Computed example of a mutant assay.
Amino acid sequence: MTMKDQIENAIDKISAIKGVGMEPMYLMLDVLALYSVYSDRFNIVVDEVIKAIEMIVNNPSLGQQLDFSLSDYKSYHFSSPGQLLKVGELPEEDMRIAHRYMKSNKLVEVLGFGHRYLPKVYDEHGNEQ
């Protein structure tokens, strides 16, 4: 399967989740970022994202309340599959989904998902943010 096919398949699978709304452009950008971080295990990471979103649909209270301009949203952290661990080491919760429950239409709005620290983001001067 080509990279394009994998990305399109991931977008189709995530957008088909019942009870969820997400801006199409943000969905595409998040899937592309996910591929750039997890190209070696992209499909299993997508499956884990889907599983986490479905858990949030079933229990929108999952996650910690965010601050400031995102105070209407929660951030749910979880572990990506396939982490290399030492004996006795717990997997890092390296993934997140920012979401909120919309009572008006009874949907979970997903603001975004992906790795908590990657890919790195830079400002217009090339400084890491």
Rank of each mutant, 00 (worst) to 15 (best):
M1A: 12
M3V: 12
M3L: 04
D5V: 08
Q6E: 14
E8I: 04
E8Q: 11
A10M: 05
I11K: 15
K13P: 01
I14K: 01
S15Y: 02
V20C: 07
V20R: 03
M22S: 01
M22K: 02
M22H: 04
E23Q: 12
P24A: 12
M25I: 14
M28P: 00
M28E: 15
M28H: 13
L29D: 11
D30M: 03
L32S: 07
L34I: 01
S36H: 09
Y38M: 01
R41E: 09
R41P: 01
F42K: 01
N43V: 12
I44H: 08
V45I: 05
V46E: 06
V46W: 00
D47E: 15
K51W: 07
N59K: 14
L62S: 10
G63I: 04
Q64K: 14
Q65E: 14
L66P: 03
D67K: 13
F68M: 08
S69F: 13
L70C: 07
D72V: 04
K74S: 10
S75T: 07
Y76R: 06
F78N: 01
S80N: 08
P81E: 09
Q83S: 09
L84T: 12
L84V: 12
L85M: 11
D94W: 09
M95F: 13
R96Q: 10
A98F: 12
H99I: 04
R100D: 03
Y101M: 07
Y101N: 02
K103M: 11
S104D: 15
E109Q: 09
E109L: 11
L111N: 09
L111P: 00
G114M: 03
R116W: 05
Y117H: 14
Y117T: 12
K120T: 03
D123K: 08
E124V: 07
E124N: 11
H125P: 00
H125S: 10
G126W: 04
E128T: 06
